[in-house]
Amino acid sequence: MTDFVLIPGMCHGGWCFQELTGELRAQGHAVHPLTLTGLGERGHLLHGGVNLDTHIQDVTGVLAAENIQDAVLVGHSYGGMVITGAADRAPERVAALVYLDAMVLGPGDSCWTLVSDQERRWYTDVVETGYAVRPLPFFDPRATPHPLASLLQPLRLTGDLGHIRRREYVYAAGWDGPSPFTPVYRRLRADPSWRTHALDSGHNLMRDAPQDLVRILLGDQAGADRVTG
Score class of each variant (00 low, 15 high):
H32F: 14
W175T: 13
R167C: 10
T129N: 10
A86R: 02
E19W: 00
I7E: 03
L213M: 09
P192A: 02
N204V: 08
P180G: 05
G174L: 13
G14E: 06
A149Y: 04
S193H: 15
G130T: 04
L161M: 10
A198L: 12
G75E: 11
L218D: 10
G79M: 13
V72W: 05
L39N: 14
T54H: 11
Q69T: 15
I83A: 06
M10R: 14
D3F: 02
D125K: 14
P210R: 03
H146F: 03
V74P: 02
S116R: 13
N51C: 11
G13R: 02
F139R: 14
R215P: 08
L52D: 06
A102L: 02
G106P: 04
G38Y: 07
V133H: 00
C16S: 11
G48W: 12
D58Y: 02
D160Y: 02
I83H: 13
C16D: 09
A30E: 03
D109F: 01
L34D: 05
F17R: 01
H197L: 10
A172W: 04
I164T: 08
H44T: 06
V74S: 11
V214W: 12
T196W: 03
L105S: 04
G174S: 14
P135G: 02
T84K: 12
D101A: 11
G43W: 00
A224L: 07
R207H: 15
I68L: 11
I216W: 11
V184R: 04
Q18W: 08
I83W: 07
A87C: 01
G43T: 06
G219H: 07
D140K: 08
D176G: 09
R156W: 05
G22T: 03
P178I: 07
A132G: 01
G177W: 12
L73H: 10
G40I: 00
Y185H: 15
G223M: 07
G14P: 09
Q211H: 11
Q118K: 15
P178Q: 08
G22F: 00
G159V: 06
T37L: 01
Y123E: 02
V98D: 10
P183C: 05
R93M: 09
P137N: 09
D58N: 07
D208R: 14
L63D: 01
P8V: 10
V72T: 15
L218V: 08
G38A: 00
